[in-house]
């Protein structure tokens, strides 16, 4: 069981969102550079070196930490951009670098010993053996857990390892083994894990047609919406397809992870930090979600129950539906 107060780790896609997250009660914010070194490489999003330095100063002045995601995998024979990103993050005074590629982990471990290394969810490390390898080889201090583990499995894992664990509690879900998704790569030629962008927007289109609006990715129809029906961003894993004569969400329903009711359980399982997904989301979303989780975490830390977090966050969920995901596996 974790002895200290759990840390609330919140997303920041832009400097304005970083400030909003800090002011809403984030213990730490995570962000990335404006290039393919991080897994949210979307147009107009992310930080320049100068913006990161200002963001770090703002966060530290308000008692929050800044974790920099350099969590995509470097190109063959071209790790320079990733090393430079790590060097800039260290120069800016970031508290930690979140990485998955062993070349990046190795560079940080050897050249920036003062900065903490967190193992990204992109590394998909979910066993004591895998986590110990990263801890022994690179001195990682924390592992961000893949969203495939139950609370009981996390508790068992924490008993077997000596590094901190960070668990996602809210936001989008991936159906594939984290860090190894090829669906978007197949359709678009760009990889979430290498280029940092799932469903690149230059290949997304919304086409109004007589039978509704078609959402397409690289020409593939991912979903079709009736006039007036809420639409979603077309990702293949959450697309609606016809198979066996039946149209359904074949891979994954468009639902949002909400483990707000499991904060006490995660604390008891030894989790150190709770992570909110959504660096691509706006200030309004981040502010509301961070405030709700701040209250919930504080309530749990004071021995009470989490507040009615499901009701508060209902409007922020993809497709207005929520799930506890693998934290409460009912299929095992």
């Amino acid at each position: 069981m974790t002895s200290g107060r759990m840390e609330l780790v919140c997303p920041a896609g832009t400097p304005a969102t970083l400030r909003a997250a800090v002011q809403a009660g984030a213990d730490a914010v995570y962000c990335g550079f404006r290039d393919e070194t991080n897994a949210r490489n979307f147009p107009g999003l992310n930080f320049s070196g100068e913006e990161l330095a200002e963001g770090v100063r703002f966060a530290h002045d308000h008692g929050s930490k800044v974790l920099v995601a350099i969590n995509t995998f470097a190109r063959v024979n071209d790790v320079g951009l990733w090393k430079k990103a790590a060097d800039t993050a260290a120069e800016c005074g970031a508290n930690a670098i979140i990485a998955a590629d062993i070349a990046v982990l190795d560079h940080v471990a050897k050249n920036h010993k003062q900065i903490r290394l967190h193992l990204s969810v992109q590394a998909a490390a979910a066993t004591p053996e895998a986590i110990r390898f990263y801890a022994d080889s690179f001195g990682i201090r924390r592992v961000v857990l893949p969203r495939v583990l139950s609370v009981q499995e996390i508790a068992a894992l924490n008993r077997a390892i000596d590094v901190e664990t960070e668990a996602f509690v809210f936001g989008g879900l991936c159906v594939m083994i984290e860090g190894r998704c090829y669906l978007s790569s197949y359709a678009t030629g760009k990889s979430p894990n290498l280029n940092g962008v799932c469903s690149p927007p230059e290949m997304v289109s919304y086409d109004d047609e007589p039978n509704g609006t078609a959402a397409r990715l690289s020409g593939f129809t991912i979903d079709r919406y009736e006039p007036g029906e809420p639409v979603g961003y077309p990702t293949l894993c959450k697309g609606k397809f016809k198979a066996g004569g039946k149209t359904s969400y074949l891979f994954e329903d468009p639902v949002t992870l909400n483990a707000g009711g499991m904060i006490a359980g995660l604390k008891a399982a030894g989790v150190t930090a709770l992570k909110i997904e959504g660096r691509q989301r706006g200030k309004g979303y981040v502010t509301e979600v961070v405030r709700a989780f701040r209250k919930a975490v504080d309530a749990v830390e004071q021995g009470g129950d989490a507040i009615e977090i499901d009701r508060i966050l209902a409007g922020q969920s993809e497709g207005s539906r929520q799930t506890a995901g693998a934290y409460s596996k009912k299929w095992r």
């Binding site: 304005a16 147009p43 999003l45 690149p200 706006g282």
Partner: peptide, 19 residues
Amino acid sequence: ISGRTEAVLALRNTIEDAE
């Protein structure tokens, strides 16, 4: 919205950050 989604996204993120 219609047209180039990436240009919309860039504008949206720029306006978000501009405050």
